[in-house]
Design a protein around this nucleic acid. Structure first.
Lengths: 348, 348
DNA sequence: TTGAAAGCGCTAACAG
DNA sequence: CTGTTAGCGCTTTCAA
């Protein structure tokens, strides 16, 4: 018996007086192994509680059975729901998930992607950081053969599978509801101007305005370069809006983080919602219905988005398709019209 | 020039007419390499954008420079803050972080730990799942030499570094504040009875009661086996409390998930807070101050806990200490007394 | 049905 | 200062 501090194929082979290849085959249930030999090996492996080393297997096979995820931060409830969707699909297929955060920073995002590729993930799921504008590094990785599926904040430039929420419709409906409730001057606060989600939600917002015969006023459109993570962004945006001659009577906030931060700031300023200013935002927080006043929200299907994106990635990985027809899946959003946008709603 | 689809030491060595060991040494800035050779190698590696394969390096070195994390779910704001603390410490030391979720299930937890060890993490940070009672499998892993640091929901049975919040004090203070505000019959709802956090918070709760000359009533103490994730748990607990002859006029909720779920349920039932029942809970949600009424909360230092736990783990990993004196670090909590416990507070 | 041998990409002991 | 060689734990030809 070889020393038992580390159980390897070699040790089992030695103890059983067989070759490592036989052990390897038996443990993977290879059919060209004698049934009784196989049983003996399995029994002994079980006794030793043997677990094949994933690292060695990965090095040898060139596949890790792990998918990497890059998103801004798990602290955002929407993304934590996405993660649960990803895991559900991955585990189903026997894949592991490695979650990393970009904190909306281009440099961190790049570093995380580098880590993931060097750790041989079989594919990557990602929502771009707010600060990312140049995605050539991703294109290079994808062209080198690593499947990437984008979700939420995507890049229009790279041809690949994508899963997004119906941002346009969500924004259009939210803005329309504010206008229908009688608000005349609806402002817009979002993340960085170039982000796909901002662009789409902005389009929905503008459509609602024009459809109501309103001409958009650039002064009432604010972007937060760091999606509101840099606190002054939010404060400045609100300050500027409230200093306008034609002060907004409602704000549509276009991202989860911006929505809760704006809500918090308005409350801190002791400005009455919705009497002085109405709010309608994008958020997946379960506490939105419990705030005062209850926060009107566009809710994205986080779990479904993660699940769908993971499924598409796994399909790419397993079928090793090179010339696939890439598709973009658009998932429906849900609107919850509550007190913050002037609606009277019963909780629950 | 060897084919360039995969850049390895071997390819660089071939192209430059040197041996792989020279390349390896040069890239790791080994001092016994000629300065000009080193520069040539570095230049060429840079040109090819060479990145050493982590998997191969891990297999060879026996260390992955990655730490694994197991916690219930990232959807819990407290844990997402812990993660950020862990990452901050890990990145500082050049370590990677792999986050996994147990969803409060013993089986899932065990599976995640198995995955992590098979993927050769250098150490594990974990908060036990609510459903975990038997930790012998962890003891075995630890005894085999893998450092493990426990945080939040810990196991008293295993001797190792631990980082926790001052659960006793948080619960004691919260309950005391409810009693000082005039509530006479304070109920208790928490996660599973056996969990360390429940035990400690319960002790703080009981201490506050006895110190106020109150004899604890078992009927007003409720446990949720799945930390409130199984929705009926919360509903049943509340139903039972409200059916008591001596109906509680206040509830101390002892975990983040239970706190928000109980709050939500009470609101849905249209029971007035704090007039009909006051609430004081443990939660790290940033929205707690924005709810109606504002939710009184014991706030745990999530970021600090993650940071400290990671630092202790990294110390264990780097110094490879076998017979360390293990210590348990207790971090202070913060109390935010708000309207839900009868306090009048100004936001912000 | 089994074994021997090569090799995934890297590092380190040992030689020179 | 640089090269040769062996080997981390596994899988896979190829040969028997």
């Amino acid at each position: 018996m070889l020393p038992s501090n580390k159980i390897t194929l070699k040790k089992i082979a030695h103890d059983l007086n067989m070759s490592t290849s036989t052990i390897s085959r038996a443990l993977r249930d290879n059919h060209e192994i004698n049934a009784v030999t196989k049983e003996r090996i399995l029994a002994y492996a079980r006794e030793l509680n043997f677990r094949p080393d994933t690292i060695a297997r990965t090095l040898r096979n060139g596949k890790s059975k792990t998918i990497g995820v890059v998103l801004s931060t798990v602290e955002n409830p929407f993304y934590s729901q996405v993660i649960n969707g990803i895991e559900s699909a991955a585990y189903q297929s026997g894949y592991n998930v490695c979650i990393t955060q970009s904190h909306e920073s281009y440099d961190l995002e790049k570093m995380q992607v580098a880590h993931l590729t060097r750790n041989s993930v079989d594919g990557i799921l990602m929502s771009l950081a707010a600060g990312t504008t140049d995605t050539t590094y991703l294109k290079r990785i994808k062209d080198a053969g690593l499947p990437i599926v984008f979700f939420d904040n995507i890049d229009q430039g790279i041809d690949s599978h994508k899963v997004v929420a119906d941002n346009f419709k969500g924004a259009f409906e939210a803005t329309s509801q504010l206008l229908n409730s009688g608000y005349k001057n609806v402002a817009f606060i979002s993340g960085p101007a170039n982000n796909s989600i901002t662009v789409e939600r902005m389009a929905g917002y503008l459509k609602a305005l024009t459809q109501n015969g309103i001409i958009a006023n650039e002064a009432t459109i604010k972007y937060c370069m760091h999606d509101g993570e840099n606190d002054c962004e939010i404060e400045n945006a609100i300050d500027e809006l409230f200093l306008l001659d034609n002060r907004p009577d409602a704000i549509f906030t276009a991202t989860d983080n911006v929505s809760t931060k704006v809500f918090q700031s308005i409350r801190r300023r002791e400005i009455q919602i919705p009497d002085e200013v109405a709010l309608f935002g994008f958020t997946n927080s379960k506490l939105a219905e419990l705030t005062f006043p209850a926060l009107s929200a566009v809710h994205q299907p986080g779990f479904e988005m993660g699940k769908k994106a993971a499924e598409m990635l796994l399909d790419l990985i397993k079928n090793n398709r090179s010339n696939t027809e890439y598709q973009t899946v658009v998932l429906p959003v849900q609107l919850f019209s509550r007190a913050s946008s002037g609606s009277i709603t019963i909780l629950g």
